[in-house]
Design a protein around this nucleic acid. Sequence first.
DNA 1: TGATAGTTTCAAATGGTTCTGAAATCAACA
DNA 2: TGTTGATTTCAGAACCATTTGAAACTATCA
Lengths: 179, 179
Amino acid sequence: MQRTAAQEAEALFIRRWGEMAAGWGISRTMAEIHALLYLTTEPLCMDDMMERLQISRGNASMNLRQLVNWGLIQRIHHRGDRREYFTAETNVWQMFETIIRERRRREVEPIVETLERCQAMVAAELKTLKGKHREDAEIQLQRFRGILDFFAAMNGLSNAVFRLGPRGLATAAKLLQHA
Amino acid sequence: MQRTAAQEAEALFIRRWGEMAAGWGISRTMAEIHALLYLTTEPLCMDDMMERLQISRGNASMNLRQLVNWGLIQRIHHRGDRREYFTAETNVWQMFETIIRERRRREVEPIVETLERCQAMVAAELKTLKGKHREDAEIQLQRFRGILDFFAAMNGLSNAVFRLGPRGLATAAKLLQHA
DNA sequence: TGATAGTTTCAAATGGTTCTGAAATCAACA
DNA sequence: TGTTGATTTCAGAACCATTTGAAACTATCA
């Protein structure tokens, strides 16, 4: 059976999307399922995906659940069909916002909290310190502040871009060209 | 021996920084070494770090090399001392730019290349297709384009922000507030 | 050139994550 | 409520990246 260009392109994209995701701490399979749904117009059921990606039922189930939790795909029920179907968000802009918000919540917030605690700990001890020790503590505080400031600025920027909506990125880039 | 707040804060930050990095596809140890150097004013040698982080010589060597490759830390030689010392970039802004550029080069560029190939493959076949097949192929092309456009906009924005320099992020966010 | 301190390399071990497959559970319908 | 088909769970298997430690290598100095 001759494969069409569309089929080959699909396979190629799915593979690469999975590889890229793996480099960003997202499981290859989760990304592959997402890629498959992103490219497909009709909703797919679990068996479709197991067949297409050659994965086990358990694996499919776990990763589908995660994708739903992230808000990147949706469950769909067809009347008169007991199976569940899934579709992906196809608005890339929306996808991006979802991913950024989730990762911020899961990974950035904990480190910000830690940094604030570190700052507080050292600041509390600062007045009891003298000489070299005091200088060192002050430098350490600067370092913590450096990262905190960065994250704050990053949040500000991403919120501003989100606020601009779907064309936000391009608009923002254009605006900044002339800044 | 009583630990100072500064020492505890250091340990806490190093641990969390490593955990965060692990969630982003960067090895825990690499990030811990980086965190240690980021907080320390004097350059450290390999043995200092092995001791401090409880890691083997080989591990330290490999990760130090990677960090140097990324451009996040520098080798330093002290006259009359055969050992190599290392320091980290402490300008968070610069750090950020370095990381974004590296990851773009390593992870984003390959997927962009793949997407362009996918597009080309499908586009070439498009004129031979009719009816439903043609519609499907057109939708697939839209999906590929969607991601490509997104990456292009993202590149544009990050370049614009880089161009603004150290205060770029904050400036950009402020500008966009009023857009 | 030999001796020594320092660094890199690499095969093997480890540890942690992901995946499988079958049993348990759940939900819809008669 | 029982039957059936779909989904979830989970213990063990498989897999992969990281780490170790020792040997090889390199550079410096006497």
